[in-house]
Nucleic acid binder design. Structure first.
Lengths: 320, 320
DNA sequence: ACCCTGGCAGAAATCGATTTCACTCGTCAA
DNA sequence: TTGACGAGTGAAATCGATTTCTGCCAGGGT
């Protein structure tokens, strides 16, 4: 692995000069040529590690997501990646697995690997960003925004989405509409349920027994749906607050022969690999990729020194 | 951000001593105590960057996969992650997007970030591992093994799987069985097609027009299936060589009203979020997570100095 | 003739941890 | 009593790039 010193001695100049050539500073044409030749001959690549140690920053951004197996987040990751790569940044993907401890670990790593910034889809509302903020590392929240920190965020309008989905079921003639949402400590989950409540209230009192908190995963949706069906007076429709739980719920309904339109189903977020039969399911599409793109652009702005007050960007659910 | 020097001066010792305390070398009990107290008081974390520069290695392994949106690879990633984390390594996930140039870039990054090793699901057979090998960084191939490099690999028996899948269709009474496989330059794609050919040959000459090379993605499967249906004498069944193309093919069949069992379908790899109706689809399950676990263990062995000749581990398709 | 400015380039400091080297003390065996 | 040995410690070198600090030299203004 060639170092800058070897290049320097081969080109007959000092390491400083090599560095200057590489970073496009004033160097005489002749020496610049010699340096470039030497660098090519030795197939020299500057050590990022040394560079990072000196500069105290690196061209890497961390993307921390709670579930790498959820296509929503991977689509978002693609968006982030595309923007970041185009700007010359690498993205490292960190899967917090909805686990606060793992998440905290990754945030620590981001700090101390001197990463340029972090895009965070938090595992819960309470996560400690103080380390990053103290060290002045930009953070952009995406999809979920942690409490108590005034940072940039890119969100969708969860409450409106929940309302729309529930209203769609109502207009299909369903009246006992249940809701399966995510964990209580995840803002998006609560807001989507609020939207459900908003819509439900328009036709009468809200029966809170029809609200199930689950875990945003297939199994959680599966279990919650089974519980709902086992109620003395089961719902005649269900609003499921994310894609994976939607899959879980549909599994149960398929088993029990109550697929839509027998039992109404509305899902927040695109069903992954939406297969087969275009069924009578209401889907509130989510601009996953666009969330990632927007967050990445926001972060890059911050990295480049933009210091206006934090913004929260709310994307429309429908690509207009 | 506290440094080792600040800790040293607070504890009234030299930086060397601090380092020794942290790395568990011989230090008198009294000084060790003072160092630990100072470290805690300053909430000191050693800089990985500086450490990596000095040691020329870091506790990070790279996992390079060709498609982050394919649940097969994300499941694999989970396996890798779990093993690596347990051993104290961080995993950075790199999405090569089936693009050889991106893949090469990530391999470069792995080299020069001094990562401890690489687990690679290659974008194609021809990929250049010489950089890693020259620098003695362990590499484990998973799912696909690059040509021309004698390295550890964890594979499934693709040919046998293709054979089994096709035979299953035959035994269901189908006779004109097509095959949709992946890119020509991806070993797994070719082997799965070979398996199809093996089985097809048992009942007569193989019609190569029934073999479509696609791209291992939903759209590719979609397009290939449409082409097959448009043939003068369309097949009466199809073996699809990966999960995403399976989804694509099924989309087409659903549209044209030829879902199984009207037209036989066998898929290599679990259908993602296998939804709804347990249809008459033959699925060859793939131990995705186990591939990751096995690869990670292999890699950790190498990192820890194991230098027996490279091994190739072939996992059974069925969890026995 | 003299000073100032600005471009160019090398020496050396810097980033923060690890490790070698060298030195001091004790302890123990000869 | 002396030499050997080992544990404990600090000073300094090291990893590789960037950057400040200096100094040199040429060109232009007075």
């Amino acid at each position: 692995m060639a170092t800058i010193y070897e290049v320097a001695s081969m080109a007959g100049v000092s390491p400083s000069t090599v560095s200057r050539v590489l970073n496009g500073q004033n160097v005489s044409a002749e020496k610049a040529r010699r340096v470039r030749e030497a660098a090519k001959a030795l197939s020299f690549t500057p050590s990022r590690i040394a560079r990072t140690l000196r500069l105290q920053t690196s061209e890497v951004i961390a993307l921390v997501i709670p579930d790498i197996e959820n296509p929503f987040f991977t689509a978002m990751a693609r968006g982030v990646e595309d923007v970041a790569q185009a700007a010359g940044y690498s993205v490292v993907l960190c899967n917090s697995d909805e686990d606060h401890a793992k998440e905290a670990r990754y945030l620590d790593i981001a700090i101390e690997a001197k990463m340029a910034g972090v895009i965070l889809a938090a595992a819960g509302d309470n996560c400690d960003l103080s380390g990053l903020i103290e060290r002045n590392r930009p953070v952009v929240a995406v999809d979920r925004s942690p409490h108590g920190f005034d940072i940039d965020a890119v969100m969708v309008d969860n409450r409106a989405g929940g309302r729309t989905a529930t209203a769609a079921l109502q207009s299909q003639g369903f009246s006992r509409i249940a809701c399966i949402t995510g964990p209580r400590d995840v803002e998006t989950a609560v807001h989507r349920a609020d939207g459900w409540r908003d819509a439900a209230r328009t036709t009468g009192p809200v029966d809170e027994r029809y609200l199930k908190y689950a875990d945003f995963r297939v199994d959680g949706g599966n279990k919650a749906m089974r519980e709902l069906l086992a109620m003395p007076e089961p719902p005649d429709a269900v609003f499921v607050a994310n894609n994976l739980m939607g899959v879980g719920a549909l599994q149960v309904l398929a088993q029990s022969g109550q697929l839509p339109p027998a039992l109404g189903v509305a899902v927040f977020g695109d069903l992954p690999f939406a297969p087969i039969a275009p069924m009578a399911i209401t889907v509130i599409p989510l601009p996953a990729r666009r969330l990632g793109v927007t967050a990445a652009n926001l972060l890059l702005d911050r990295i480049n020194g933009d210091d206006q007050p934090p913004r929260t960007i709310v994307l429309r659910n429908q690509a207009a």
